[in-house]
Nucleic acid binder design. Structure first.
Lengths: 173, 173
DNA sequence: AACATATGTATGCATTATGCATATATTGGA
DNA sequence: TCCAATATATGCATAATGCATACATATGTT
């Protein structure tokens, strides 16, 4: 029963955070849906194909093509030739990189407003709990990339990323 | 810097949780967008007007009218006469209440999968941190209702709800 | 080398969820 | 009684997405 209440609080926090995150981040991207995630992901992993991006964003293929169309029309993303005659490689333009910075900074700000309420000790506790949760939530390679699709790799080094660590454990042995 | 990493982890957890929550809860509701939240909210607060619902769901008025149209067409919600000649009172039908139960139970399940990873002590810590976060995130009456729009009031008594407590502190003095 | 199959991308068409501008109905007060 | 405020509804448009399908390139088999 007490656990059920904690579950409920967790759901409310997640919902509330994503509400404001989505709003702020969408405003910066100039597009909604998965567009902000596309810009952030392409910044961290330049040269992704449409198909690879599609799996990270959990969209249909046509949905991803259209998303890239919109971003390209806005001069945020470039389609270049990929490793293959079929495959494309997607890159951010200069404007796209700027947009990405704005998105990440809006995200930091929004999250920071909520975290201000926590004492330094609380924050340390929170980090530990979040690591455990993230590790448990990483159930497949696809989920791993999806979880990190809005992450700021500049502040979260990959050798300490619980998602990557869990992912390595899943694939290697 | 360490704080920035914690922020980032928090954002990833929120995103990951809402991903699966939205999927499961949408499947149960048979509608996407704010439809699940509408059913949950109307179950907890029967007789809300369209305008009141609109503020909780953070939709435009026309958007809310159309949402109620869809739910009524599916025989999940009834429009009845309200306190006024203008005002409507919205109620769940029998089918709507069933749908609501399914939504809440899917939500519990999804959240529970993530929480399984935490020890009992961790869960207690987590509850405390979530209470602090929720209190900080309750910046207005509107946000208070929005935060709780998918909550299961059966497991989260209102006299211990950090959102309601914070909201009372905001309005009364 | 030829052809079947797989892979990657694109397009036509439809749908869901939503917003803006505006219309309609009811209420309450000057 | 008339006007402003409130509550709901409708016409029209848009954003973001999916399904079915088409097209282009690559790979493997014989």
């Amino acid at each position: 029963m007490e656990d059920e209440r904690t579950l409920n609080l967790l759901g409310a926090v997640a919902l509330g955070l994503v509400d404001v995150l989505a709003m702020d981040v969408t405003a910066q991207a100039g597009h909604g849906g998965e567009a902000p995630a596309a810009l952030v992901t392409l910044g961290a992993e330049p040269g992704l194909s449409i198909n690879a991006l599609r799996q990270i964003l959990n969209l249909s293929h046509p949905g991803t093509v259209r998303l890239v169309d919109r971003l390209e029309a806005d001069d945020l993303v470039q389609r270049r030739a990929g490793s293959d005659g079929r495959t494309l490689a997607l890159f951010l333009t200069e404007a796209g990189r700027d947009r990405r910075s704005a998105i990440l900074s809006a995200r930091r700000q929004s999250l920071n407003r909520a975290m201000q309420a926590l004492s330094p000790g609380d924050r340390q506790h929170l980090a530990h709990l979040l690591e455990t949760l993230l590790s448990a939530m990483t159930t497949s390679e696809q989920r791993a990339f999806a979880l990190c699709r809005l992450c700021d790799e500049a502040v979260c080094p990959s050798d300490r990323c619980p998602v990557e660590q869990r992912h390595d454990n899943l694939t290697q042995p």
